[in-house]
Computed example of a mutant assay.
Amino acid sequence: MRKLRLLLFPVAGIYYLVTLTRNKLYDTGIFKSKKYDVPVICVGNLSVGGTGKSPMTEFVVRLLQDDYRVATLSRGYGRKTKGYLDVNPENQATMVGDEPLQFAQKFNNIQVAVCEDRQTGIETLLSKVDPPEVVVLDDAYQHRKVGAGFYMLLTAYSDLYSNDFLLPAGNLREPRAGASRAEVVVVTKCPENLSSQEQLSIVDSLNVNKTQQVYFSTISYDEKVYSALGPVPLNRLKVKKVTLVTGIANPKPLSAYLASQGLSFSHEAYGDHHNFTSSEIEMLETLDCILTTEKDYVRLRPLLKMRDLFYLPIKAQFLDGEELLSGEIKNFVSGF
């Protein structure tokens, strides 16, 4: 695979020119980014693959939901519908996307919407009787038709954008210089014991500008797993024949965590946002106990009749600086 990607460097050069030109046209005002009369926060990344956007979006929602009418707006990746849709907990993931459905089922006092055109999405939200006071864009860093007021750029500890290359030779959606648009950079999925010295080394490698603050976060796993019947401690699953079923970009951290907790399991791994076929569902129905991610659970629950279907929630947990980041976000919203 690595050799194949090396052969694709000439194509990456063409992609570089296209994306660089597009960004320059927006930066110079030839292409227009539309701004709105409400605070718009964008959570995104430079690369394809999982950097932890959903847990970070949930962090922002938790921070603001008690004081403001908050709306999340996503593309609704993998859905079979098009255009603007309001998301409610009773929807199917195939209609609205798994991550927006996860937000709608978890937070009962926010608006959740999907629309591939973020301008249309924001304008539809703002036309409602009770419009949101804050809009959080999930995965819209490259959607430059909208000019967000606060950009949170995520990069995974194990795959820093500073060490990556443009598609198709690497995983970057745009040149590294695009990082300069962000107010803050968050290095996600870090080891909990990441030293201050290594943090400084990473900050140096990211080549951020003087106005950008860099934060470091890790994945925090819930102590309990959840099913339609409610929560139970994770260690209750040790007496069951567990199969871990994942349809996410990088299941290695989850697999390693479960192993560290002494859980024995087999693993059925599928691609990110995988739409399960009828034959796959039939196979999964034969399993004794399934443990999955929250994102996969919203897709699997309507399809599986089995009793022992559990998910393990996660949160973004900061190694340090959470109060400082929270203050930055709150100051942006209150001072808008």
Rank of each mutant, 00 (worst) to 15 (best):
V184Q: 06
V242L: 04
S278Y: 00
D320V: 10
Y161L: 03
L291Y: 04
D222Q: 11
N275I: 11
T243Y: 02
P251K: 08
S33D: 08
D130W: 05
F310Y: 15
M306A: 06
A256R: 13
E268F: 08
K305H: 14
E323M: 10
V11M: 13
D159S: 15
I110P: 01
K82D: 08
V18A: 13
R5W: 01
T51D: 04
N209T: 05
L46A: 09
G29M: 06
G335Y: 07
P55K: 09
V134S: 01
A12M: 11
S264R: 13
G335D: 14
L25G: 02
S220N: 10
Y226R: 04
A156N: 06
A228N: 10
A148W: 00
N235L: 04
E294W: 09
S196E: 14
V87T: 06
R181D: 02
Q197W: 01
F216M: 06
T188N: 08
N235P: 00
N207Y: 03
N171H: 14
N109S: 14
Q212L: 12
T211R: 15
A169R: 12
V185G: 01
L126N: 07
L20N: 06
L137I: 03
Y297Q: 05
L258R: 03
H273T: 07
L309C: 08
A177R: 15
D138L: 03
K295P: 06
K32L: 06
E328R: 12
V11L: 15
I110S: 08
A177T: 14
T120L: 00
K82V: 05
D117E: 11
L303E: 12
L263A: 06
M95H: 09
N250L: 01
S279C: 01
C115E: 01
D98S: 09
I14K: 08
P168E: 12
T211D: 15
R307F: 08
F336K: 09
Y257E: 10
N171A: 11
L319I: 11
K106C: 06
M283L: 13
C190T: 11
L258M: 10
L126A: 07
N88T: 14
G97Y: 03
T218E: 01
G321M: 08
Q65T: 12
N163D: 15
F318L: 11
N207E: 12
K252H: 13
D66Y: 03
Q213D: 14
V43R: 02
